[in-house]
Simulated assay, not measured.
Amino acid sequence: MSALGRFSVSSQGERSTMADAKEEWLNRMTEMLQVDPTDLVEIAAMFFEGIDDRIDRICSSGQAGDLEEMTRLAHGLKGDAANIGFLSISEIAKNLEHQGRARAVVELEEQVASLREATATMKASLDL
């Protein structure tokens, strides 16, 4: 799990830890991607712009039994999240993708809730 995926926003002490996690993420990703930190935060903001809709579509396609569509959507989210260093989101999406491919989705609603929680934590960590 990435540093950002470990924190909640419930106390002042955790907020400062989240600020440290944000700095750690920015340093790691700007070095790896060779981009300006401001550009990286802008890329992260774009990632989050449609995230709720993407998660809703993963959930609804899984609930409807359209596992091919669920797998495709989860695969896309997995890659997009990994590319920007949001490893907790990527890992959950990867699990959904693999379960969809195997046609053996387990606890879809719980996994979607975990995906929403990881997303909210990342977004809050970046002050977006």
Rank of each mutant, 00 (worst) to 15 (best):
E31G: 15
R72M: 09
I51S: 09
G65K: 00
E68I: 02
G76D: 06
W25M: 14
I89G: 03
L33I: 02
L96H: 09
I55T: 04
A44L: 13
I89L: 07
E91Y: 02
D20Q: 13
K22I: 00
F47K: 07
Q63E: 12
T30V: 08
H75N: 05
A19W: 06
C59W: 03
K94M: 13
P37E: 03
A19H: 05
E68V: 10
R72H: 07
D80H: 04
L96V: 10
S90I: 04
M29H: 12
F47S: 07
K94I: 05
M70F: 04
M29S: 13
M46R: 11
G13E: 15
S61F: 07
I58R: 00
A21M: 08
D39E: 14
G85Q: 03
I55C: 07
L67M: 00
I84N: 03
D80M: 07
M32V: 00
D66M: 01
F86C: 06
M32P: 01
T38I: 13
D52V: 00
I89A: 04
F47V: 05
D80F: 05
G65D: 11
E49I: 05
L87S: 10
S90H: 03
G76C: 07
F48E: 12
G85L: 03
F47I: 04
T38Q: 08
S16W: 13
M32S: 13
G85R: 02
C59L: 10
E68M: 00
H75S: 06
V35R: 13
G13Y: 12
E69P: 01
I89N: 03
L73P: 05
H98N: 14
M32C: 01
R15G: 01
M18H: 04
E31K: 14
I43R: 11
Q63F: 00
R28C: 04
R57M: 09
V35K: 12
K78D: 02
I89Q: 01
G62T: 03
T38Y: 06
A45M: 11
L67Q: 02
M18G: 02
I92G: 05
R57C: 01
E49V: 09
R57P: 03
A64V: 00
E14P: 06
A93Y: 06
A82H: 07
E49C: 01
G65H: 01
D20E: 15
M29I: 11
V35C: 08
E31H: 13
F86S: 04
F48D: 11
R28E: 15
K78I: 01
E69Y: 00
F48H: 12
D80Q: 09
A82W: 06
A21V: 04
D36S: 06
M29L: 13
I58C: 10
A64P: 04
L87R: 02
V35G: 08
E23C: 04
S60N: 15
E49Q: 12
D36L: 06
G79E: 05
N83D: 08
K78Y: 02
G79K: 02
G13T: 13
G76E: 07
L96R: 06
L26V: 15
D80A: 14
R54E: 11
E68K: 05
E42Y: 08
I89K: 01
S60D: 13
F47M: 08
S16E: 15
I58A: 10
L77C: 03
L73R: 08
M46T: 09
L33M: 15
K78H: 06
K78C: 05
K94S: 15
L33F: 00
